[in-house]
């Protein structure tokens, strides 16, 4: 990968990371089973998925870009699936509530007035506990999280590969590898916090009305990633 291409790859990776946050269901009040989504802030959850992706991508660094991206996406998606499974087990057998989408149950999701799960067709309304905005992760939310983690994993792996390409000619391999990983994680964290501002700490994923705010995130992440990529490129190639 040419240095200039690597710079554009860092920008693209940053933007993909930003978009992925909109797909990952997260809610702080989910900790009390009072809202649909994994019980943490969207940015922290996305960052966790991204780091899992970067770690798995690192294992296939010598196998070329396509394998690195596939490895990152798979690692990230696996982390997300296991987290959702763990959350649902805690909700079902610990708290005693079944996974249900609050927005779909109230007819406010992007599916319109339908109160049924977009994938299974199961009605969500009867399963909502009074006074809550849903709980757990129903199938449509689960699939959304999977897609989000897949996108985020590709973004993280792309940044890792691009930074490694920039550093490999000027540093010894272990140092280039470690620094690329830390910078990849840094770029992931920077871009995963910006969407959290638009989501205001809570989202049900791609069926949430907040998915319509993705263009704002896209533009913000594009600008911030461009500045970071230019600075990294300047430090590695120009100066």
């Amino acid at each position: 990968m040419e240095p200039l291409t690597a710079m554009f790859a860092i920008i693209l990776g940053g933007v993909l990371v930003g978009i992925c946050v909109h797909f990952i269901p997260a809610s702080a009040t989910g900790a009390m089973s009072a809202a649909t989504g994994i019980a943490t802030g969207p940015s922290m959850l996305s960052a966790g998925a991204g780091m899992a992706g970067i770690l798995s991508a690192a294992y296939s660094m010598d196998s070329g870009l396509a394998v690195v991206l596939a490895s990152g996406a798979t690692g990230s998606a696996l982390m997300m699936v296991l987290t959702i499974l763990g959350g649902n087990i805690a909700n079902a057998f610990g708290t005693g509530v079944s996974p249900a989408s609050g927005q779909t149950a109230s007819g406010q999701s992007i599916l319109g007035k339908s109160t049924k799960d977009a994938i299974t067709g199961w009605d969500q309304k009867p399963y909502i506990s009074p006074g809550t905005d849903g709980h757990g992760m129903p199938v449509q939310t689960h699939i959304s999280g999977l897609i989000g983690a897949f996108i985020g994993g590709i973004g993280g792996a792309l940044v890792l590969f691009a930074v490694y390409t920039l550093l490999a000619p000027i540093l010894k391999p272990e140092a280039a590898f470690t620094i690329a990983g830390v910078i990849g994680a840094g770029v992931f964290l920077i871009n995963s916090v910006l969407p959290a501002y638009t989501l205001v700490g809570k989202t049900e994923g791609m069926f949430d009305q907040k998915i319509r705010r993705t263009p704002k995130t896209l533009i913000s992440c594009l600008i911030v990633s461009t500045v970071i990529a230019v600075l990294i490129y300047s430090a590695a190639v120009v100066i």
Partner: peptide, 17 residues
Amino acid sequence: GTGTASIGYWGTAVGAT
């Protein structure tokens, strides 16, 4: 719209990177 922890992680991500 994000937690205190997130803004701390974000700030250090920029600075340390």
